[in-house]
Design a protein around this nucleic acid. Sequence first.
DNA 1: CTGTTAGCGCGTTCAC
DNA 2: GTGAACGCGCTAACAG
Lengths: 343, 343
Amino acid sequence: MTKRNAYTMRDVARLAGVSISTVSAVVNNKGIVGPDLTAVVQKAITAMNFSPHAGARGLRIGKTNILGLVVQDITNPFFVEALRGVEDEAIKHGYEVLVCNSNDQPDLELRHLNALYTQRVDGVLLATCDSYAARQALVRDRAPIVFIDCVPMKAEVNCVVTDNYDSCYNAIRYLIGLGHERIAVISGRLVHSTSIARVEGCRKAMQEVNLPVLEESLREGDSHIESGYRIGLTLFQSPDPPTAIFTLNNRMALGILRALRELQIPCPERVSVMSFDDADWAEVFNPSLTTIKQPTYEIGKAAVELLLQSIQSASDETTLEPRQILLKSTLCARDSTAPVAKS
Amino acid sequence: MTKRNAYTMRDVARLAGVSISTVSAVVNNKGIVGPDLTAVVQKAITAMNFSPHAGARGLRIGKTNILGLVVQDITNPFFVEALRGVEDEAIKHGYEVLVCNSNDQPDLELRHLNALYTQRVDGVLLATCDSYAARQALVRDRAPIVFIDCVPMKAEVNCVVTDNYDSCYNAIRYLIGLGHERIAVISGRLVHSTSIARVEGCRKAMQEVNLPVLEESLREGDSHIESGYRIGLTLFQSPDPPTAIFTLNNRMALGILRALRELQIPCPERVSVMSFDDADWAEVFNPSLTTIKQPTYEIGKAAVELLLQSIQSASDETTLEPRQILLKSTLCARDSTAPVAKS
DNA sequence: CTGTTAGCGCGTTCAC
DNA sequence: GTGAACGCGCTAACAG
């Protein structure tokens, strides 16, 4: 490798003609070294292109300055945007981020979690793909953790999520306001707390106006494009198709749109389409897509803030009540939703 | 934090009633420990939920089993897909991946690179946002590196990229085959080797059929949606607009599409649109978008393989010739491109 | 203010 | 086969 010539503090100390601890003090800005000596040391450092060995430091101080982030599906723009929030906030506080994609596989998620523990990350941000699994136990006596997007069932944990219930309640109200009565809802897998909360919000809105909650038009997908597509096809081959569809994530909306296109069903003339999650392409689409926009970047940012507090209190040996942070979404009304057609 | 009770090998050794080195041997599958004793140790390990401290091990063996990945813009699906390839391949070989987003800022890129060095990653994968900067020097005597997508100018380095030149040559040939003569090309910033190679491919194809290479229709964007949009607007307010547009990345295609939509210019009737980079939404769009699809996942995968070889040879003290791996793309002909309209 | 020393958790010789 | 001692690079006490 062109010889891994990693210089050490000893090398720097030798070159600068000082002791190791002086170098250490300079590197860490302890402010106890005289200005002239500091200058000498600095010069030696830049001359050698020295950079302290993070692993060694971590070993010594019991802190790696690394955060772990595990997401369900990095292919989903939602998580990418959250990742950006996480990274920006992390770097601001001097942390690196180890990113893991569990690809919706609980066992892979677990493996990642273990790997993160092995790395002794200072904390982990988890968008779990399985709310029922006892993540809590896995994490106990390990690193502080904050959940994103999807929280474990029946557990008091630190988390930051969109107000899924309210968002969906509003979404359905919006469709109802447009005159729709036959509304299909396509959810992600119901093992996700997120999906459950969203479906409940939808139900509430429908019940409120005494709309029959059609069980057959509440379909469970798996958050991927393919499933939206398949469900879309069957939905429109039924005798009495819905006049509006609300997909509970953006990937499935893409699938629905594809099905509509293939079946040559005009949107919004024959059917209105609305989706949870905004995306870059949503407003460029033809017709542009009505969406519920989550404060995705902010979720990542807030999650890191919460995690950092949690880490702090852990090292303080103080106890912090788990906090649930709920962020509000925005309804972006565009062209894919329209008043129901008279027939 | 519920007390950071990280158990150490000593704890395990004590519980198992053996010495530390025995535990170490078991953990590392040295195959020197008797089966019965091994079982005892294993039991102690699982009982304590022990996991070796990666940092300490890294310090000892001079290897962290961490790879660094720096991308220009994590918001671009291209890099996400590459990231997936990287992660999958990395995990297969027991590596973790530290992901950094430089956000197209050279100074941030540099900062990330330094941070990765501080972490003593075993190697780095870099999608640089500035081909001209002397990354080579920065990296010398540090970690092995392989470049992705964008390579430094005039430097022999390990890299894996799409065959940009050929891909674009073929793309333009395709448009020409459709009868187009006024073709606009919208490139990313010309500081990227990638953009340069692509533009050259386009030029070549045009020159070959004696098509005037209209400098005014070769526009430099910055790879973001906004720039595609702005360029699209001005392009169509010119007296003699192009009959075909080829954007050199998918974000800008989205911008063009938006401009077209706003200007109510029908595609492909009045103008054909084609884009480098495929995306999920490309085939669902209306009209579906003709694209050049890069083997993105494979790029990430191949890059890790190359990097691992490089790391290996570095520790062997053997010298390896830098390798340039060129991957082929695919032209996905869809509905946004059509024969030029007679007028 | 500066230098010396001990030890973080682990892997690796060496004796046994 | 197994166990004791050393050191990877660094920080934090303490002594000067």
